[in-house]
Write a protein that binds this DNA or RNA. Structure first.
Length: 161
DNA sequence: GCCAACGTTGGC
DNA sequence: GCCAACGTTGGC
């Protein structure tokens, strides 16, 4: 198998639903419930080993909370077929599943959350999707220079390969 | 709680 | 295929 460079991502979660602390406890978690095609397509591009900035949204303040890692290739999200799940999708067919997910494993929790405003104020992060107004996408690609910069701001121990 | 920015749905 | 209505995300 040829090695390919790791891709880098940012994934948002409301900490009241699932936080970096929850992931630290669980070690690994299926990223259920993404119901946006663009976000789904990005998950389908992911490979085991890709690194993720774990972002806390809809909280005060929102911001980058830690680092996670993709732990498997995308597979069908089982909650789309579960009538009792809030993520149930009656239009999705078993033989042609509409929604995918990846499993995500804990890597590191930042000593301190890096607030969105701090990310926005840093000229080195100009162009990073999450700092742009109206960016609602819950799964986004991150450029290496931006990922590296966030790690540095956080004093993170994680190193890019 | 408000509302801007989008994505989705469905009538036509 | 257009687009109005509606729903959701997520910062503030």
């Amino acid at each position: 198998m040829p090695k390919r460079p790791k891709k880098l991502w940012l994934m948002k979660s409301e900490p009241s639903t699932y936080s970096i602390e929850d992931l630290a406890r669980d070690r690994q978690e299926p990223w259920e419930g993404v119901r946006n095609y663009q976000a789904r397509n990005y998950m389908r591009e992911m490979s085991k080993g890709d690194l993720i900035i774990f972002y806390h949204s809809s909280t005060t303040p929102p911001g980058a909370a830690g680092v996670a890692r993709v732990s498997c290739e995308a597979y069908p999200d089982p909650t789309q077929f579960d009538e009792k799940s809030p993520y149930f999708d009656p239009k999705s067919k078993k033989e042609d599943p509409r929604w995918s997910l990846v499993d995500v494993e804990f890597v590191e929790k930042f000593a301190q959350l890096i607030p969105l405003q701090t990310l926005k104020d840093d000229p080195a992060l100009k162009g990073m999707l999450v700092t742009q107004k109206g960016s609602r996408l819950s799964v986004q690609p991150v450029e290496q220079k931006h990922f590296q910069r966030v790690l540095k701001m956080a004093g993170a121990t994680t190193k890019l390969a």
